[in-house]
Nucleic acid binder design. Structure first.
Lengths: 117, 117
DNA sequence: GTCTCTTATTCCTTGACCGGAATATAACTG
DNA sequence: CAGTTATATTCCGGTCAAGGAATAAGAGAC
């Protein structure tokens, strides 16, 4: 049981149903029954998705009598954010260049011939 | 060839090899050959991964003689960032709570007496 | 204890994806 | 034109994930 949650984090979020569950839990913690109803999936299927999310560290469970209330765990979000950071820099840079080019180009100038490499 | 790239964005990044390719292209645009060599995959497999990334809108191709130079497209990064935003708020909130709790605890009051053995 | 409610797990089938080998396509070279 | 290089696509076998049905497990209520 090492720290292999990195790989499962992406695969966990790759499934649309699981992203829907995550979005549901963003509003508030919910017991499984509510999630089943909201997702339109069968209860076993939902439980399996919740298991994947749990093993990815994205959700935590709290036992409340017979019910199990799932809630988001904010930690993996930070992990995603960290992964995204370098690309966000690229994005900002390209926005910058776009702005500069729009600034520099004449309105009837079709395009800049890319300098050969 | 519709605009169904939203779903494929996550599935494209779910694969470790594709994330590796994306990381390679973050450094600089590269022709396929370089990516093949860096990934240790076969050329067809790499081409297929590049296709998935292309269809997800994550990379663009520029033809340079016989070579095809792939480069990151920064737009989907913004999409991911937008998706992440609400969760980042949750994360900040929980960091806030943690700070408050750390603030409340006395500095020489260890939360856990480190149960060694 | 039994019964009920809520959730988790197993079994099984279907469908998707990954990988490599072989092949096809495209662009340059002579 | 044939030949070579660089990349894309098809074909196929193996693996893995998803979904439902049935079943098990856990926690009250009686």
């Amino acid at each position: 049981m090492g720290t292999m949650s990195d790989a499962s984090l992406w695969t966990a979020l790759a499934d649309p149903h699981r992203r829907a569950i995550v979005a549901l839990l963003l509003e508030r913690p919910r017991p499984v029954g509510e999630i089943v109803e909201a997702c339109g999936l069968s209860q076993p299927s939902t439980s399996k998705h919740l298991r994947v999310l749990r093993e990815a560290g994205l959700v935590r469970v709290r036992q409340d009598a017979q019910r199990r209330v799932y809630a988001l765990d904010p930690a993996p979000i930070a992990e995603l954010d960290a992964w995204l950071a370098p690309y966000r820099r690229l994005w900002n840079r390209s926005l910058d260049e776009l702005g500069r080019r729009l600034d520099r180009t004449a309105p009837d100038d079709p395009e800049e011939p890319a300098p050969k490499d």
